[in-house]
Amino acid sequence: MPKKTYRQAINEALRQEMERDPRVILMGEDVAGGMGSPGEDDAWGGPLGVTKGLMPRFGRERVLDTPISESAFIGAAVGAAATGLRPVAELMFVDFFGVCFDQIFNQAAKFRYMFGGKAVTPVVIRTMYGAGFRAASQHSQCLYPIFTHIPGLKVALPSNAYEAKGLLIQAIRDDDPVIFFEHKAMYDEEAEVPDEPYAIPFGEANVTREGDDVTVIAMGRMVNFANQVADKLAKEKIGVTVVDIRTTSPLDRETILETAAETGRVVVVDESHPRCSMATDIAALVAQERFADLKAPVKMVTAPHAPVPFSPALEDLYIPSPAKIEAAVREVLAFQG
């Protein structure tokens, strides 16, 4: 099977869905780039080149560069979705949601409910998240818990290139609004990705490692860190189950609870801040539903309650690392009740 980067997988998903369905359009700041400028057309293909080549393939009518005007174009994507298109809008960095959140959480998320089930809003908002890029406080946040909090939105966090293609195709075909989180530090990571289109259903967690001793529940880039830890500890005969939840909304409660109960020792790894996070959400879920099966308190590994720092020295300390995950696994393993 061919190896492709996370970036290529996302580009391929967009291309194949645009070929399949003429209602799929792209919009965003510099998704092609060079609009109205004297130099090259398709100059950027997105700030990190993810959408490169799609404008030459599909034309300016379907790959729309926008002004830097997130309220207007995210809202336009929502309105277009409610009236018959299937737009994929790129909110360049999730940190920018502050200027357009109304259109996402008051409009897109609520149309269907407020309008008594008569609205369908198949919009996808692709956005970059995550630390590790030395991009500092306003370009490095995770923020997916905020979107997860809103009923009416679905939230996907692909953990590798294979997942990215399948989850994005599902997002585009999904009839509900989907916020699609791409980790900016993963665009060059490769995985085997089939050439053919395929969709990964939402709300179905992926168990990436199986072990009998500790269950690590993770999402996005943290899945890879958790897998590294599981592989390392396997050599010490410590069995670690790793669950990639794939989507924070819907959440695969069944797999989380089953795998938590099987080992009785749970670590939740979440790159976002610790308060009101996926880590607290999943920890509370496990504690409420499987208390009797737990052999140790649920341990959370998260970023701290602080903005993302700029200095590499500080940012490296900030990110939940494989070492921190490993320490947490050993801690729950050592716990004697």
């Binding site: 207007a72 309105g79 277009a80 979705a81 409610a82 409009q107």
Partner: peptide, 23 residues
């Protein structure tokens, strides 16, 4: 496309509806 409880909520949405019509 709805009355709207958010003042200023509608204009971006009709840009989308207009984009649908155009596309």
């Amino acid at each position: 496309m709805g009355a709207n409880g958010i003042v200023g909520g509608g204009p971006p949405l009709i840009c989308g509806a207009a984009l649908t019509a155009k596309t």
